[in-house]
């Protein structure tokens, strides 16, 4: 039996909003450690990895590991039926072919129950090397979202370069070009507004903005986003997931293969 209860059901709604347009179908791997998912987009250019730790749930029971394969747009449609303040409980019997979602409104006697069909998916699990990166940048997530959205008006790709204590995002296209330069800040009063840059070596790499704009749909999950870059390896865009009390619940990490000069 698998059962996971989340009083702040809105977190699960936000997670689905952040992945459903990138990945159609994926499997949740549920173990005593928590729920995790890894999936590539259909063109195999990007990869998303989600982790929700067991102790972040308000109740978590997983008698034996289960893989819950599902259509994410179906799951997202069902989660739209839950209110932002609802408690969400996921339930799956050991050998069932569906998952049950129970939504309970706060301070009300209303409970709704939905079922989503499970699928057997041939998902390939990719090994992600745990390597240090040349550049790590932490910045406000809304700022990253805005830069990606603005630069997509100019071109299809963004060139990210980092030197000393600044990071530069640049795009060019038929209409002209645009650049956004961010310098490291020291705003200790408001850590969520700060930009911090840690650089081992300067870097310059280009990425498709279409995917970065998909990743930015995770913005409501976290006030800060972390970008990790190294020469000729995929970019990592990470949003940590915290609950209202600020406790660490897990993360969404997106990996994006670079564009290379032919």
């Amino acid at each position: 039996m698998f059962e996971a209860k989340l009083i702040q059901g809105a977190i699960l709604k936000k997670i689905l909003d952040a992945i459903k347009d990138l990945v159609n179908e994926a499997s949740w791997d549920c173990s005593s450690q928590g729920m995790s998912l890894q999936a590539m987009d259909t063109s195999h250019v990007s990869l998303v990895a989600v982790q929700m730790k067991a102790d972040g749930f308000d109740k978590y029971r997983c008698d034996r590991s289960v893989t819950l394969g599902m259509n994410l747009s179906s799951l997202s449609k069902i989660l739209k039926c839950a209110g932002n303040d609802d408690t969400i409980t996921l339930k799956a019997p050991d050998d069932g072919d569906k998952i049950t979602l129970v939504f309970e409104a706060k301070n009300e006697s209303e409970t709704s129950e939905y079922e989503v069909k499970l699928m057997n998916l041939d998902s390939e699990y990719l090994g992600i090397p745990d390597t240090p990166y040349s550049v790590n940048v932490k910045m406000p997530s809304h700022k990253f979202q805005r830069i990606c959205r603005d630069l997509q008006q100019i071109g299809d790709a963004v060139t990210i370069s980092c030197a000393k204590d600044s990071i530069r995002f640049a795009a060019k296209g038929d209409l002209g070009s645009g650049t956004v330069n961010l310098c490291q800040t020291a705003s200790a009063d408001k850590p969520e507004d700060s930009v911090s840059i840690s650089m081992q070596e300067p870097i310059i790499q280009s990425f498709a903005l279409k995917y970065l704009n998909h990743f930015a749909k995770a913005t409501p999950l976290s006030p800060q986003v972390s970008l990790s870059l190294s020469p000729d390896v995929p970019l990592v865009v990470e949003y940590s997931i915290t609950d209202d009390d600020g406790s660490d619940f897990g993360y969404i990490r997106y990996y994006l293969a670079p564009k290379i000069d032919e």
Binding site: M40, S46, G127, P234, A257, K259
Partner: peptide
């Protein structure tokens, strides 16, 4: 510019 795929960097575990 050409787009690389993620599978050219990460291999099946």
């Amino acid at each position: 510019m050409s787009q690389k795929t993620i599978t050219s960097f990460f291999k099946p575990a």
